[in-house]
Amino acid sequence: MAIFVNEHTKVIVQGLTGGQGKFHGLRNRAYGTNVVGGVTPGKGGQDVEGIPVFDSVAAAVKATGADASFVAVPPKAAPAAILEAAAAGVRFIVCITEGVPAQDEARVYATLKRDFPNTRLLGPNCPGIISPGRCNIGITAGEIAQAPIPGGKNVGIVSRSGTLTYQALFELKQQGIGVTTCVGIGGDPVPGTSFVDCLAEFQNDPETSAILMIGEIGGSAEEEAAEFIKAHVTKPMSAYIAGVTAPAGKKMGHAGAIVSGGKGTAQGKMDALRAAGVQIGANPTEAGQLMAQIIASLS
C-alpha cells in the first residue's frame, strides 16, 4: 500500500511541452510512473518522446483514463490549470509551481472545496509526491528513495520543505529503511493538502509503521498536526522543525515561512509536537536517527 498514488495511478502532465513539465515529466516516466499524456492548449496531436499531448485535460482524461495530474505551468496559469483538471474529473492534482499569489491559492482552495470536494490538490509550490518503486509525481530524485521493504517496517514522510525531504529520504535509504510514500505539501500559505490530511492517510495505511514529519516556522499547521496526532495517530513519529533561529518578521524563502506577532515559532511547534508524543530531532539528521531507532525497536 501507499497513500494517494501507487503503481496504478495514471498521470497526465499539464505543461508537458514546457521546460519544467518536459524535464520532470520525462524523469517521472523514466522512474516508472505511468505517465499517459500531456496537456498544452493548441498542441493537441503532438507528442513528447512518445507521450501524447492533448488540447485540454478533459480530452486527455477521455483518451487515457488518467486519474492524476502533474501541473507544471507558470504562476499566472496555475490556478486555471488546477481548476481545469478538477473539472475534468482528475482526483489527485500535484502543482509544483512556485510563486502563485496567496489570493489565488485561497480562491482555488475554496472553489475546490465547494465544487470538487473529492479532488485533492497537493501544493502549489511543493516538490510533489513519491511512493518509492511505484509512482513519482513532481521533482523528487527517485534514486534517493528506498522502496518499502516487504515484510519490514516502513516509514511515511510528510514535509513542508523540499530539500529537507530529500535529505530525509536519503538518510532513511542509507539506513536501509523503506518508505511507503513521501509527501511534500509545500511551503505556501494555502496548501491544498495539509499535514493532517497526510497523517490521517498514513495512520490508516497498513504498510506504514511509523511517520517522519518535517515542519518549519510560520502558520499553525504543525500545531494543528499535534492536536490531530494526540487524538488520532497511534503510530510512532519523529519530527524536525526548521527555523529555530529565524528572526521575526523575515520571510525565510518560502512564502509561508515567517514568524509574525510571536506566532509560528519553531519552539512553539516543537513543544506542541513533543506534548503529542512525537520525538523531536534538533536537526534533520537527528530526526532521521530517531526514526531509525523507532524502526529498530519495532522490528
Binding site: S161, T163, L164
Partner: peptide, 27 residues
C-alpha cells in the same frame, strides 16, 4: 549558502547549535 529554503533555515539552526551565528540566509 544552501540549496532549498528549508535546508537554508536548517543550516542557520545547526550553526547556532554549534555555538555560532549566521551572517545571512541564502537559498
Amino acid at each position: 549558502i544552501a540549496n532549498g529554503a528549508g535546508l537554508a533555515m536548517s543550516t542557520l539552526d545547526v550553526v547556532s547549535q554549534a555555538g555560532g551565528s549566521a551572517a545571512n540566509f541564502l537559498d
